[in-house]
């Protein structure tokens, strides 16, 4: 059955995934917009950087983050200079790691959706007296709705299943940084297969339901239009 510790891990996982998705939507939207619109020559550098977590082994990403966020790393030093704590082995550190790790899953669907809209609807909106910000919210957001949904669900689901990065920078501190995938690993290591079954089955179900939502809703959007 599911233990108290497993419930805590589930709660931490959901909190991590929700917070990461929210922050990624906030910073990923302008970034994706810029990537979709900009005609800067070296734009591809940034595109490659955003896509890097897709190919990089999570442990490699986690290792560098551990160094950067730890007490001797640049970000850790900066935090200490500001009177804070180094971020390695903290929940905040996990959030930072997850943001980088899941970035391409949010930015790429958004960028694709923004590119597909093209210039014309924005020009029409401008000719109809809509200011740039107004154009974004009244034209781009509704037209890119399927893109936003895909981005949010992929970002959330991808963070749910995170393992390597979390293990490297979060460690395995129950109640602080122990997430579901690590709990499953621990159960298997301890030969507690029944607990591992419950958690794995639960995660499988959640992931499948979320993807069903994406495809189902995207189908409805396209029928509505």
């Amino acid at each position: 059955m599911i233990s108290e510790a497993d419930l805590t891990a589930l709660f931490i996982t959901l909190k991590l995934a929700a917070l990461t998705t929210l922050i990624l939507l906030i910073i990923g939207t302008p970034l994706a917009w810029w990537l979709a619109r900009s005609r800067w020559r070296y734009k591809f550098l940034l595109e490659a950087l955003v896509a890097l977590p897709l190919v990089l082994p999570p442990t490699v990403l986690g290792f560098y983050l551990l160094i950067a966020l730890g007490p001797n790393g640049p970000i850790g030093q900066m935090m200490q200079a500001l009177g804070g704590q180094p971020l390695a082995f903290t929940f905040t550190g996990l959030v930072i790691g997850s943001i980088i790790y899941s970035m391409p899953f949010v930015v790429q669907p958004l960028q694709t959706a923004f590119t597909a809209i093209g210039q014309r609807p924005l020009e029409v909106a401008a000719s109809l007296r809509a200011s740039p910000l107004d154009r974004f919210f009244s034209v781009v957001v509704p037209l890119a709705r399927p893109g936003f949904l895909t981005a949010a669900v992929l970002g959330f689901a991808h963070t749910l299943g995170e393992f390597g990065v979390v293990l490297m920078i979060g460690g395995n501190i129950p109640g602080v940084t122990q997430v579901l995938s690590i709990s499953i690993y621990n159960h298997v290591e301890g030969l507690e297969y029944s607990n591992a079954h419950w958690l794995s089955g639960g995660l499988l179900l959640i992931s499948f339901i979320m993807l069903l939502m994406v495809y189902g809703l995207n189908r409805r959007f396209s029928l509505l239009r």
């Binding site: 014309r120 029409v124 109809l128 007296r129 200011s131």
Partner: peptide, 17 residues
């Protein structure tokens, strides 16, 4: 967006949403 004009494009370009 601050010019008092109407613009009709070659394709109607209606908002699909």
């Amino acid at each position: 967006h601050k010019r008092s004009l109407g613009y009709v494009f070659q394709e109607a370009s209606l908002f699909e949403h």
